[in-house]
Nucleic acid binder design. Structure first.
Lengths: 195, 195
DNA sequence: CTTTGAAATGAACAGGCGTTCAGATAATCA
DNA sequence: TGATTATCTGAACGCCTGTTCATTTCAAAG
């Protein structure tokens, strides 16, 4: 009964990622079984192991992929100019990148503790790299005399927490348009670091 | 071999709560087994069921207890005065309440999805009640003309996310003193809502 | 000193877990 | 057309899961 029409690796692979992301975001890594993922995809559990060596890799690959895409997209934005301009660009980039990916964002923040120590370390480096990008902007603002934050590292963490928190309650169906959300959050960020 | 010296319910009960909180905060509700908790307490797994009807209640009771303590403590603070004064009191209260309870805070934010629908709803109400307390202060500030936030509900969520994010990275051993942390965060909050 | 009963044990229950693998299937290449 | 090969099935592996319960233990009450 194997190899039904349309069941090629080009199709099954992405479907596994999608199903895993949705299920794990909803119920958590530990609470989701390989069998549930397989059922969602419409395949027997053994077939999953043609695409991932084990469950842990499934999680790590998702998180690594997400962070990689995030860092690449940030780099591609090529944010420069004075500190205020860069901060606005960063803020709007963060919101626009995160809002359409609620599952990945949720997983990237909630499932850190389910990573092997080695995998945890790798993701940690990537997270810190993103944090540094914002801390750099804040430092530039200090130097320019445009911002006043007593600790750029702490402030960077605080602002990222604020911005990412948005992903935890925002739902597409809500009445608030993204443009309006962006403005509200940019107002808060801009004033928070102001002199 | 039962009933060794010192193994009364007054002692075992709190030890179960403590062990469960620590393990669940570290590894997640779904990843922690009743047997692990029992081992940590130094008791057989069956003994746990003298203290909780099931695993789900263990989680819910912890979260409900935490939220209850939070709301009671907030009420006891009796925060009043002008909006700026109240906002500072709320901010400092939030930090002082959350920092000494990293495990409970972690659980209260990470394990919502592992609650039964009925339990989820109950905790949701309590969370919203806390959110309302801050939103009220922001609204007062708007009325007084002391604050300028375009959406008090969104701003309240944003600020709480920022403040709670602190609990996710702050560790007692760190160099930063609580008083200093409080000041840094209060600066960010105060300016974020300023005119 | 005996009785009582809360508290803990230890074994069992049915079912789910991640992972492996021989064998079946069907699209593709020669 | 026949051989090859990627893909999937179906069954099995040993182990762990939450929960129950008859039995044992022993501090405290009478």
């Amino acid at each position: 009964m194997a190899r039904k029409q349309g069941s090629h690796s080009d199709i099954t692979g992405p479907r596994i990622e999608e199903a895993a992301a949705q299920l794990i975001a909803r119920h958590g890594y530990a609470a989701v079984s390989m069998r549930q993922i397989a059922t969602e995809v419409g395949v027997q559990v053994g077939a999953l192991y043609n695409y991932t060596p084990d469950k842990q890799s499934l999680l790590f690959d998702m998180m690594h992929n997400h962070m990689d895409t995030l860092l690449s997209a940030l780099k591609a934005e090529n944010i420069n100019g004075d500190a205020l301009t860069r901060l606005e660009a960063f803020t709007r980039f963060h919101i626009r990148f995160h809002l359409p990916r609620p599952d990945q964002v949720f997983i990237a923040y909630m499932e850190l503790r389910n990573l092997d120590p080695a995998n945890f370390a790798k993701i940690g480096v990537m997270r810190r790299s993103y944090e540094d990008a914002l801390a750099d902007i804040l430092q530039q603002g200090e130097t320019e005399g445009a911002f006043a934050v007593s600790d750029t590292r702490v402030a960077a963490r605080a602002l990222i927490a604020m911005l990412t928190g948005l992903s935890h309650w925002y739902r597409e169906e809500g009445q608030l348009e993204i443009a309006r959300i962006e403005t509200i959050y940019w107002d808060l960020v801009r004033k928070a670091v102001s002199i």
